[in-house]
Amino acid sequence: MNYPWDVLGTEETNDKKVIKKAYAKLIRKYRPDEAPEKFQEINQAYQYALTLLKSNQADDDVVAVTPEYPKKNESEEVQTESPIDVADDVAEVESVVSEFTHTQEIDDVIEEVEEDDTELNLANDILEQFHQMAFAEYKRKKKAESWNFLNQYHEIQDLQLRDSLSKELFKRVAEYNFFQLKENKSLLLNQPMVRLVAEVLEWESQWQEFHQLFPEDYVQHVFSLLEMKGKQKEGEKFYNRPFGVFIEIIMTVIFIGIIYQPSFGLDKELLIIMAYILFNSFSSLSSISMSSMQYMLDFKLFDVYLNEPSLKSKIIRTLTYHVSMIPVYLSAYDAEYFVSLMFPVAAFLLIINVILWFKNKQLLHDWLSGTIMLK
């Protein structure tokens, strides 16, 4: 028998909280007024475990006296010597012997353990919410209020638990981003998000400790985000994306103008439109997922979870874009179409795109395909 751990129903440990938790669980079931013999056995095992704990925590240069192994259901108290010859420590060991002999004292232990459990549950809840938010839709997690659950961190009174939680969240930020960079060449948690988390958890005051605990690439990654000047560009201004499209159209016009010959049998305007649709569709359905000029301007296309968009999303996005561009194509081919028929359609599409932009930082083809473009 591995005494006292078998009686307490736990593995051998030097963690006082684990010992108290096991003890509280048992004395809830075996109260001294209902099962006095069983309670006495549990109480002796608990006292013996605490005495072992005290012995294990003695200084290396002090030889602790191994406490006497108490017999099962033994009525007399366990007599031990103090592992450290200091008055305060002696008093503490003596208090262990007489502790928990009254119902109120037992209730106090149960209440203390329940408080520890509450804080541990709160810490686990914060970790779970953090995980869910990290993999949530981008438009949700980019809102500062979505991270308000982190403020519960300051409700944890156990400083050791708070410290462990802070370090675990730091590790997860680095690991989540490294995973996303490897899979999709994007950040799961971008600069504003990491700054928000770091501000709540006060990471910047823990530089030295993090350098000692974590791999250097973890520390460099997180603190490089914290040290970046200004804000990371998320949606860009409304005119920046059309600017890339405009440049691509101009380049198409110049290219067709250079190679065009009347012998082609097509109007130059129609050839320009066809060439632009072809070039744009090819680049949008390729690995770069957007127009070549937008790619050169350092834009990137993702789905709403910041993953690489699927081929289906790319096709829907490309088709929607070119359908939306029909008024522009027709006006380029014949201005009369634009004035008589396409102007109202163009105005309606423009209004829709402006509304979607200011609401979600998306255009119509982004919204319908479930994609977002970031710079």
Rank of each mutant, 00 (worst) to 15 (best):
V197N: 06
A335T: 11
Q157A: 15
D85G: 03
D88C: 09
A49G: 07
Y333C: 03
V304Y: 10
F39G: 01
L196D: 05
D116Q: 12
D366F: 02
L181K: 14
L201K: 02
Y305E: 14
N121L: 05
A123S: 13
L181M: 14
F210K: 01
R140A: 14
L150P: 11
L53N: 10
M296W: 13
R172C: 07
F238W: 09
E94W: 08
V200F: 07
Q191T: 12
D60A: 13
A136P: 05
I273V: 13
K71S: 14
Y239K: 01
Y329F: 12
F238G: 00
I259Y: 12
A346Q: 06
N360W: 09
H102V: 08
H221S: 09
K25T: 07
E99N: 10
F255Q: 06
A91Y: 13
K16N: 08
S331N: 10
F130V: 07
R140S: 15
I326S: 01
V65M: 12
M296T: 08
W207H: 12
F135W: 15
S284K: 00
E199H: 13
I256F: 08
N190Q: 15
D217G: 00
K141G: 10
Q160C: 05
H211V: 07
D59S: 13
L52G: 03
R195P: 01
V113M: 05
S82K: 02
E99K: 09
D163H: 15
R162P: 02
K54V: 05
E269Y: 06
D217T: 06
A22Q: 04
D89W: 08
P4D: 04
N124V: 00
E209R: 06
V253A: 12
K29I: 12
N56Y: 07
K20M: 10
D59H: 08
M228G: 10
Y321L: 09
S369D: 03
N2S: 12
Y337M: 11
M274N: 02
E204W: 02
V328H: 02
M373Q: 08
N190I: 05
L122S: 03
R140Q: 15
S369V: 05
Y3V: 01
E336M: 06
F246I: 03
P36E: 07
V253K: 02
F214R: 07
N14V: 03
K361E: 13
I256M: 09
L169R: 02
